[in-house]
Design a protein around this nucleic acid. Structure first.
Lengths: 213, 213
DNA sequence: CCTCGTGATGTCGCAAGGTGACATGGTTCA
DNA sequence: TGAACCATGTCACCTTGCGACATCACGAGG
């Protein structure tokens, strides 16, 4: 069943190395070939040459195979937020622009494929929502660690996240060619315009101190 | 097993009426008594006096039993947004204040119980995220129907949603007694403060007027 | 060189989520 | 009276996920 007859080359370990990587790759391929729903964990394991049980030991559940990179992303984001000393919202936007350049910039095609997989499955959409939610929470925590109040921190993190999601959606869209970092800057500016006081004057906010708890 | 000795009063249908309502109630009770994970669909069905298969015909999946009201909520929200003619962000905030008064105001305790159930289960959290996401999409659509651009509509809807979520979290919190509508107004004003243009020379975004698609 | 422990895997079995197909029996209308 | 209807119950089955136990290469000692 598995490949026990390998072992004729150097290392010659009992099992081929990087089971995790092979499983991620197998899952990605299969989700594209068939769909997420029509791919069985057994299928993924088979293509990766391991047992179904091994898949679960490495991933927790079928969806996780597509979200392995989110940990790293969160890490970079939190560090970026912690290191800057700009105002909360600006700090978060800057952090997103940084990951845009450091992590996403060179992977547009890959991101597009991944996105199309996610969009085809409600289950994956839910998981993505949870992952981004966790990232927002991490950013909020990082902001709070800098002395900000709960509400201010949450609002800054969530708003920044909204800006990122909108920019990201545009970036991933078919005929888009602008850089993600630029799109983020644009969207952030639009958000400022939209939330500026009812009247009109997009400039000076009429007081409304942001004094939080 | 099912409903044994009923049928002595008027209608006397083959089955007790409102299977859906009984299932929702049974689920709510059981999720509180044990937890979501430790409650089986079979348990819920048994308590409601119907078969497991009936549960699935009415709900789609186990989580759905807790989110039946979201349809109504979305409906009211969309209508409120469609009927006003205020600026986008203000329109969304106003819509949320309306549902706060019309739907949530009298149900704080129930909402608290429900929230504690959701917070104890990752699966339910994911589902809630998806439901709120769907509501934001509906609001975005309502805004677009009024002639707004995709980005503006999305940003207004999402920002309004963020304001609502933060206010809601405060409202549901243990020692809170302020009204949800008031909290929403407060939080909205804080968001305006946070996103108002950087003091002055912080991070002037390069150009990028808020010109939407 | 043998032995034992360790760790990543494979095997087995099973509870629970979810679904298709078909059986049932009140209700309604011709 | 009878047929079409329709919400339910029944049954069989697939898949997800997990606990428990068996394996076996590899490394540390004796």
């Amino acid at each position: 069943m598995s490949q026990r007859d390998i072992g004729y080359h150097r290392q010659m370990a009992r099992w081929q190395p990087d089971a995790r990587g092979r499983l991620e790759a197998a899952a990605f391929e299969l989700f594209r070939e068939r769909s997420f729903e029509q791919t069985t964990v057994a299928d993924i394991a088979a293509r990766a040459g391991v047992d179904k049980r091994t898949f679960y030991r490495l991933f927790g559940d079928k969806r996780e195979a597509l979200f392995s990179g989110s940990g790293h992303l969160e890490e970079v984001l939190v560090k970026a937020v912690a290191e800057t000393d700009a105002a909360p919202f600006e700090a978060v936007v800057a952090a997103f622009r940084r990951v845009a350049a450091e992590i996403f910039a060179d992977r547009r095609e890959l991101v597009r494929m991944r996105q199309s997989i996610i969009e085809s499955s409600p289950e994956l959409q839910e998981r993505e929502l949870r992952k981004t939610g966790a990232m927002m929470a991490a950013i909020t925590a990082a902001l709070r660690a800098k002395g900000l109040g709960e509400t201010t921190a949450t609002l800054a993190a969530e708003s920044g996240g909204t800006v990122f999601r909108v920019a990201y959606a545009r970036w991933v869209a078919p005929n888009s060619d602008a850089s993600l970092a630029d799109l983020i800057a644009e969207v952030a500016s639009e958000l400022r315009a939209i939330t500026s006081p009812p009247g009109h004057a997009v400039g000076g906010v009429p007081r409304t101190t942001g004094d939080v708890d």
